[in-house]
Simulated scan of single mutants.
Amino acid sequence: MSQISIERSHSLGLETARAKAGALAEKLTRDYGVECQWEGDTLQFSRTGVDGRIEVGEDKVRVDATLGFFFSALSSQIEHEIEKKLDKALQA
């Protein structure tokens, strides 16, 4: 298993950042079959081989993901893709 942790600062405020995380979750659901559920300001996500969470704060967003055996071999590519999608989602 492999761990991915990414943190980004933002100046969007909590509500806007939460809305953008929600839009990102919808895209992940459509594109990759990821199941998402909000628990407060934390978005839990999962699919076979991947579990994680997106913690949305007033000025930071943190993504933590655990990759199963199959996806561990692709961890650097997956981390890069998450960084790219997160940076795009947090653009003002």
Rank of each mutant, 00 (worst) to 15 (best):
M1T: 04
M1H: 06
S5L: 12
I6Q: 11
R8Q: 12
R8L: 07
H10E: 07
S11T: 15
L12H: 11
L12W: 13
E15N: 09
R18N: 13
A19G: 14
G22N: 02
A23K: 01
L24T: 01
K27E: 14
L28E: 12
D31S: 14
D31E: 14
Y32T: 05
G33K: 01
G33H: 02
G33E: 01
E35C: 02
W38G: 00
E39R: 03
E39N: 06
E39T: 06
E39Q: 08
E39D: 09
L43K: 05
F45M: 02
S46L: 00
R47W: 03
R47Y: 03
T48E: 09
T48M: 07
T48P: 03
D51S: 14
G52E: 08
G52N: 05
I54S: 02
I54F: 07
I54Y: 03
E55L: 06
V56G: 02
V56E: 02
G57S: 04
G57V: 07
E58M: 10
D59H: 05
R62V: 01
A65P: 03
A65Q: 09
T66E: 15
L67T: 08
F70E: 02
F70P: 00
S75N: 00
E79Q: 15
E81V: 10
L86C: 07
A92S: 06
